[in-house]
């Protein structure tokens, strides 16, 4: 039982979901199944608008599927749970709070026994880890896009969530900042292991960060393809340019092509 809980730390089983819109029904997910082991890191890629963000909202308990179920640690997800931390493409920092207070926000919501000093220390430690020491008292508008995204990551992790959900958090950043943040992600994972789900449209990012990459088909999305990565844990950017990485990249690119071709045929 315990091992079942660990291999299926996040489990999505036979999920179908249809949105009711003004123009009619929009089937978004179709019999999608997916599982992430404890402390694993899965990247999800797929055509634009295929339902990736919808999957993150299902895992976070923000949305309940029409058909099928989602389990975290073996328990069915019926509503949001504080073992989850989330970060989005838009860092959504609160403009009226300092960076430190922004990072501390989840600690004001999630029940915890930390003193206010301990909460602050926790936030400061994380900010230091992502290289934002000295910016604690700045307002979000005084930071660059990459720095805001770092702060947003700290906020997602401050309450030590067991599960981290990232929905294209690096999508809007330039290539160099993005590679910096990839390294930061590995550091964070090494320091405080978590089970991660990353939505991305950058295949190199998926290969560099994940243990497993899942390709979703076009809408309505189902799991089209899965690829285990060879590496586990921290790796250097150079490894992205090895023949093996190139090969993986090509396989994934081919799969995305297939996913996009099929998009029009199912409606």
């Amino acid at each position: 039982m315990a091992s079942e809980r660990n291999t299926n730390f996040i489990k999505i089983d036979g999920v179908s979901h249809t949105f009711q819109t003004a123009t009619g029904n929009l089937p978004v997910l179709d019999d999608l199944s997916l599982s992430v082991p404890k402390n694993g890191f899965t990247a999800i890629v797929g055509p634009s608008g295929c339902g990736k963000s919808t999957v993150t909202r299902l895992i976070a308990g923000l949305l309940r599927p029409n058909i099928g179920g989602v389990w975290l640690k073996g328990e069915p997800v019926n509503s949001p749970r504080d073992i989850v931390g989330m970060a989005f493409q838009n860092p959504v920092l609160l403009e009226w709070r300092s960076i430190l207070k922004n990072v501390m926000l989840p600690l004001e919501i999630v029940p915890n026994s930390l003193s206010s000093v301990a909460r602050e220390q926790r936030a400061l430690d994380l900010l230091k880890l992502v290289g934002l020491s000295g910016f604690e008292d700045k307002k979000p508008s005084e930071l660059s896009g990459g720095m805001r995204q770092r702060a947003s990551l700290c906020r997602a992790l401050v309450h030590k969530p067991e599960i981290l959900i990232l929905d294209e958090p690096f999508g809007a950043l330039d290539a160099f900042t993005r590679e910096d943040l990839w390294q930061t992600m590995h550091q964070l994972r090494e320091k405080e292991p978590f089970t991660g789900v990353l939505i991305t449209h950058d295949l190199r990012e998926a290969i560099f960060l994940a243990d497993e990459v899942v390709v979703l088909s076009g809408r309505p999305a189902t799991t089209q393809f899965k690829q285990e990565m060879m590496e586990r844990g921290p790796r250097s950017i150079d490894q992205l340019y090895t023949p093996r990485a190139m090969e993986t990249l090509n396989i994934l690119r081919e799969q995305i092509k297939i996913a996009r071709q099929n998009e029009g045929t199912v409606s």
């Binding site: 959504v92 609160l94 919501i109 906020r155």
Partner: peptide, 26 residues
């Protein structure tokens, strides 16, 4: 923006908390 609501809702915050901490100041 729904994302502002979601960062608190994903933590299990009540509607009132979301109103008080995010919607109102914003």
């Amino acid at each position: 923006e729904p994302e502002y609501r979601d960062i608190l809702r994903a933590l299990g915050a009540s509607r009132f908390t979301i109103f008080w901490k995010i919607a109102l100041p914003k």
